[in-house]
């Protein structure tokens, strides 16, 4: 009796938080079709989330592709198949590493950034001021961030994939003396439609995780600067973990239904 009461009490917080999160998600989605649209805010966020993330995405893409070619090339060498490096690098990048690494990097940069920005606004009463002055904070703050991330993350993932292939090619060229034409035609032919769909659908889904979790923790912040710091960390951790978990499930679904 006592134990079950304790467990219920323990679960109450997370359950309420989840409920609040669903509410926020629902409202943010509903606002996509509603007036007013804050196009300036969407553009601003696209710039800060999308363009601002390009350097980190270039670095992540290049080094992850390079290190993959390095290890794959060596493994394939044992079977005399170094020539297949391009195929392997391409498939892994487009299906898995590109989406997940880009999403994790952008989560580290923007889920926390969003949480700290909205959190500071919350604790300094700017969110209340917004409501008092005629704007719905979800419409003005959450929806633009959600749309901007939804558009930009798939684009960033494509960039990451491509730069990863370049990184893989440079390593392949230097260490395994791969032929450029062979490498690039392999990376292209290795991909089937389901890979491309998977490679774009995943970042689209993760974009909601990043923007909505960032906004959620930001809007919940309380207790001054310390509260903002806590919200920032929580947002980044929650977004990253959610992305990794979703990544496995989406991978499973694609393996089951696309047959490869």
């Amino acid at each position: 009796m006592l134990a079950s009461g304790f467990v219920l009490e323990f679960l109450k917080g997370p359950t309420l938080a989840l409920q609040e999160f669903y509410l926020l998600t629902g409202r943010a989605m509903r606002n996509v079709t509603r007036q007013p649209h804050y196009t300036d805010d969407i553009k601003l966020q696209m710039d800060s989330i999308g363009v601002g993330s390009i350097p980190i995405v270039l670095l992540t893409g290049f080094f992850s592709g390079a290190v993959m070619a390095l290890q794959m090339g060596r493994a394939l060498q044992q079977y005399g198949q170094t020539g297949r490096t391009g195929t392997v690098v391409s498939i892994i990048l487009v299906r898995e590493l590109g989406p997940v690494l880009t999403a994790l990097m952008v989560a580290g940069r923007n889920a926390s950034g969003i949480a700290s920005e909205l959190g500071s606004m919350k604790v300094t009463e700017q969110i209340d001021a917004m409501r008092a002055l005629g704007t719905d904070p979800i419409q003005k703050l959450v929806t633009p961030r959600m749309i901007a991330t939804g558009v930009m993350l798939p684009c960033l993932t494509v960039i990451d994939d491509f730069v990863g292939m370049v990184g893989g090619w440079i390593i392949g060229k230097l260490l395994y003396d791969l032929d450029a034409l062979q490498y690039w035609s392999q990376t292209w032919h290795a991909l089937v439609w389901s890979d491309v769909v998977q490679g774009l659908l995943k970042p689209f889904v993760y974009s909601f995780v990043i923007s909505l979790i960032g906004c959620f923790y930001g809007l919940r912040a309380s207790g001054g600067t310390q509260g903002v710091g806590r919200a920032t960390t929580q947002a980044m951790v929650a977004a990253s973990v959610t992305i990794l978990i979703l990544n496995l499930f989406m991978g499973l679904i694609f393996v089951k239904y696309s047959g490869n």
């Binding site: 606004m121 300094t124 009463e125 700017q126 001021a129 008092a132």
Partner: peptide, 10 residues
């Protein structure tokens, strides 16, 4: 409304 800490958009 004037908020306690002004609540200007910074």
């Amino acid at each position: 409304m004037l908020f306690q800490d002004s609540a200007l958009f910074d």
